[in-house]
Simulated assay, not measured.
Amino acid sequence: MRVNGSLADRKGSDQVATGKSTSSSNSKKNKRRQKKSAAMPTAVQRVFEACKEVFADGAPGIVPSPDEVERLRSVLDAVMPADVGLSPNLSFFRDVGTGGPPPVTYLHLYECPKFSIGIFCLPQGAVIPLHDHPAMTVFSKLLMGSMHVKSYDWVNDPLGSDQRIKSSTGASLAKLHTDAISVAPCETSVLYPAAAGNLHCFTAVTSCAVLDVLGPPYDDEEGRACTYYRGNACSNLPGDGLTRCGEREEYYAWLEERGSEPDELVVRGAEYKGPRIVDH
């Protein structure tokens, strides 16, 4: 999902100590912290270092090798809520009771032209509507809670063209990839530029948080804008949108573009207070 503007407050929270003894004490503590940090990088730092290597030669539409995908997935699998400063009692996970849709909170960790790292925090009932990830590889790690995930892939012309199949109204045909509830802890999911559920939507069954890595990140000027969609089950395919392939059921839908800012989606930024990423 695209987060427009500088939502996250990135001001440092360190306080400057006064007094000779306090300053000296803090200096010693900082040195000990630096030595400990150098010896054992935080989980967030390990994610960052893996991203730098996995996406080093990345470009729009270029998928990392299977080994690189598994390497980054393994690093993300090891991240726990406490590693990024999250706990269920934070205000991010409570519906503020405004009468509108529960707001989604975005915590910005890092972004460069190659990749971005961020966390979406959803109170119960919050929804991130169906949206795409053009020419991007996306890693999503459910850190806490349970979430319903529904995802699709575009269906291209069977004659071999890379053009989507479209209806008379301009909607594009998509095939259902996932329609399930994920419960933390679980494995990191990976979607690709043209497969594994490139379009997805999230609904918070309980309060939950998702750590997202996008490679490369959204960029309107580069043609990677985030587009939202609404869908309807196909009525002109066998079985009213249901076909059978052996024992496997396959569902399809016509998806219509909704633009870049759905009314029911409210995203707010908040200061990330977990361990910081150091870009050497």
Rank of each mutant, 00 (worst) to 15 (best):
G61T: 00
R230Y: 14
L255Y: 10
L214Q: 12
G12R: 11
T137K: 04
N4H: 15
S260F: 08
R46W: 09
D162C: 05
M1Y: 01
G241N: 00
I181Q: 10
A38N: 14
H280L: 00
V79W: 13
L191H: 10
E70R: 08
K35T: 05
K28N: 08
S151W: 01
I181K: 09
D263K: 09
T22V: 13
T105M: 06
L255H: 07
G274P: 09
V205C: 00
K175Q: 14
S37Q: 04
L199Y: 04
M80I: 02
D67W: 12
L109D: 02
E221I: 11
S87R: 11
R268T: 06
S13G: 01
H200N: 06
Q124V: 05
Y218P: 05
K28D: 00
V96T: 01
L159G: 13
E70L: 10
G269M: 05
F92H: 04
F93A: 04
P158H: 01
S146G: 09
E68I: 13
S91N: 08
S207Q: 15
A270E: 15
L7W: 08
A253R: 09
D77H: 01
L255V: 05
A171F: 03
G97I: 04
A174Y: 13
E70M: 03
R258W: 11
S207V: 08
M147A: 11
A78V: 06
S189V: 07
V155E: 14
P185M: 06
A171C: 04
I119K: 14
V210C: 15
D132T: 00
A8Y: 06
L176W: 07
C186Y: 07
K273C: 15
R10Q: 08
D57P: 13
W154P: 11
N30H: 14
A43C: 05
G246C: 12
S6T: 09
V278G: 06
K35P: 01
M147K: 05
F115E: 01
L142C: 05
M40T: 10
G241W: 12
P102L: 11
L237R: 08
N89R: 09
H177R: 10
V16S: 13
D179Q: 07
